[in-house]
């Protein structure tokens, strides 16, 4: 009985997820939307936001959740700060990645790490609005009532090995990134939800310094 309930739960869960994704309809190449995203990007100097990250491991039925804060400043200054359930900060600045892992700091070049490099470029391109023209991905645009969903299929085998596909969700009111979903080859995925977004508010210089 328990097994049947479990299978039923999985099937219903799958249908709900499918329904959620299938609410989106394909948008043919659309200059107007591209212009809107570009205009938003051109006027954007800073973003500050809270985020919730959920790693879903489908086969294991495990979800690992973490929370934190995100800052971005034109051009290419970024800080991801995980605050729960652990302290972990990634600072990307001047082509360097500095990590503070609960007080233990390490530093390396963005260019020396292909995955970090690509992820950094994807996030930057999404924020800057250039993602739609990125030739390293097969890009398709979808929409529903609230979001434009950009589906990115990596062309590089090295990236494909790690990320099978990515989805960026732009909200239709502000045209800024609201959600990012990274799907792995196994079907496991990471969903990052941004909330309490502040656009173009000044960010203190100290945010982009790690002691």
């Amino acid at each position: 009985m328990r097994k049947i309930l479990y299978i039923a739960f999985l099937l219903i869960g799958h249908q709900l997820v499918f329904a959620q994704e299938s609410n989106y309809t394909l948008v043919p190449q659309n200059k107007e939307i591209e212009t809107k995203i570009n205009n938003m990007a051109n006027s954007l100097n800073t973003i500050q936001s809270d985020f919730t990250q959920q790693k879903h491991m489908t086969y294991l039925s495990v979800t690992v959740e973490s929370k934190g804060k995100f800052w971005y400043q034109k051009e290419n200054k970024m800080r991801w700060q995980y605050t729960e359930p652990y302290k972990y900060t990634i600072l990307i600045k001047d082509g360097k990645i500095t990590i503070d892992d609960g007080g233990k700091n390490s530093e390396f070049k963005v260019k020396g790490n292909k995955i970090f490099e690509q992820m950094n470029e994807i996030i930057s391109a999404s924020i800057k609005g250039t993602i739609m023209k990125d030739e390293r991905f097969a890009v398709t645009l979808y929409e529903n009532n609230a979001f434009y969903m950009v589906k990115l299929l990596p062309k590089s085998p090295e990236v494909k090995e790690v990320i099978a596909e990515m989805f960026m969700y732009f909200d239709k009111t502000g045209f800024s990134v609201s959600k990012v979903k990274m799907v792995e080859k196994s079907g496991d995925y990471t969903l990052i939800n941004f909330s309490n977004k502040k656009v173009n508010d000044p960010i203190p210089a100290s945010v982009f310094i790690l002691n």
């Binding site: 990250q53 790693k55 491991m57 086969y59 294991l60 495990v62 690992v64 973490s66 991801w80 995980y82 652990y86 972990y88 990634i90 995955i115 992820m119 790690v162 990320i163 990274m182 792995e184 196994s186 496991d188 990471t190």
Partner: peptide, 20 residues
């Protein structure tokens, strides 16, 4: 994670950003 159906324990190591 212990998987009773497989009588096995799975061990997954991933980055903080979520990459396995």
């Amino acid at each position: 994670k212990y998987i009773p159906a497989d009588s096995a324990t799975r061990i997954v190591f991933m980055s903080e950003v979520g990459i396995t």
